[in-house]
Each structure stands twice: as C-alpha cells, then as structure tokens.
Amino acid sequence: MKILVVLRMIPDSAGELELTSDGRGIDREWLDFQLNDFDDHALEEAILLKEAAGATVVAVAIGEGSNRVLQMAVARGADEAIALEAEGDGMIDSRAIAGSIVALARSKAADLVLCGVQSTEDLFGQLVPYAGALLSWPHVSGSSRLGADGSALRVTQERGGGIAATYEIALPAVIGVQTASKAPRYVSGSKLREASKTAIGKAPSEPAGFERSAEIVALRLPGQRGTGENLGDNPENVAERLANILAAKGFAGV
C-alpha cells in the first residue's frame, strides 16, 4: 500500500493575529507556523498503518517551514518527503491545493490519501472531499481509528454526540483524520539529525480547475460580543473574586 499524507503549515493558533493594511489577509511576517494539528494525527495514522500492515509513506508538505516538518515526518517513519510549491504567500486554500494533491496522488500511484479533517485556513472548503471527488475516490472525514484489511480499509468516524460509525471502504480512498488511533509520537534528536540528511523532493503547483470561487472582501477581528466581566491577571485577586462569586451563586460554602 502506498499512502500520501498531506502536511499543512498554518499560523500558530495561540499566537496573536494581525491584519494586513489592505484588510484582506493576516500579517504573516512575524507569525510562527506550525503543523496543522489534524495533519499531525494524519501523519501518525499513516505511520501506524505502515507498522501494522506494511506501507510506503510519502509525506507532502506545504507552507512556511515545510522542510523542517518533512524531516520530522521522515524521523517518525515516512519514506519519502516532498515540498509542494505554494502559490502566493497567503492562506493555504484547500480548494486551490486540491489539484496539486490529486496530481501527486496519481503520479505517486497512491492507494490512500490521508490528511487532517480540516485546517483553520480552509475557508473555501476542506481538502478531503475536494481531493476525493476530483479523484472519484470514496472519502470519509473525521476518522478516529483506521485499519487496513487487504484491499479495504476499516474506518471509524466520529459523528458527534459521541456516536461513532465504522465503515469498510474499498481502496483507493481519501480519509480526513481527526484523531490518530494513538497519540502522535515524539522523536528523538538523534533521529531528527539522521532524518535531516534525507533529500526533499519538490512538486509544482497544479490548478484544480475551478472557474468561479468566492473571494475575501475583508477580514476583521470579532468584536468582544461577550458581556462578561474581566477579573484581570493577578491570580490572588482572581481567586478571591472567584471564591466569592462561587459562594454567592451557591457553588461553594463560605
């Protein structure tokens, strides 16, 4: 089995986001970029499948810091690393990169494409259904467990409310991973140093061929809609206020 796993570098969600002067993008100059959390789980699921059933794992990364994350992927067990050319330096738009992922899935003769179920930048749709529909492969988003069974895949999907459905899917397929079967592993510094010697291939951007798309008119920061009270940043003061509030509302005795 050959698995293509997609790794997208996105702005650190804990960081402060500021808008560009034209108001159509976020200022990326001082941002930290990190691997999309769901893609990290997709990578782990790919490596777990390789260990359980035997597979070749091709990691393809896009965005700022791709080379670093590809070395990490190789250190964790990926067999091949490819940096995908990004168009422009803005959001990683899953609708736009779907064409490149489809081209790579075909050229690498992948049986399975894994990527995170969503990213914070997929405003114009998620990669999994785009890639699945463009390839005419079945796709399932939101997996929490994956197992290979010959030419079929067994996928457990989180449906909300704690309900989980398990499907059998004929390969080839595209799966959007929400949670890997096991938490993503850590890799040692020595493995990372070893992996840094791996050659990183390059893949050009390919259009997905959509003629019409929505476009961003303006970005804005949400106003604080909450009317909540700010108790400040001094832990002792906050604790005192909270103890009183909890007591007043009947949640603690005073």
Partner: peptide, 23 residues
C-alpha cells in the same frame, strides 16, 4: 457544518465547480 457536512459540501463543490464558503 457537521461530520457529514464536512464531506458533503466539498464533494458537491468539486462535482459542480460551484464556489463554497465554510464556517
């Protein structure tokens, strides 16, 4: 926007070529 909707919206967008906005 649900587990099902995540698959359905993009699938229809890819098949029709229509624009899609999420969230």
């Amino acid at each position: 926007y649900s587990a099902n909707g995540l698959d359905v919206a993009g699938d229809l967008a890819a098949r029709t070529g229509w624009p899609l906005v999420s969230y």
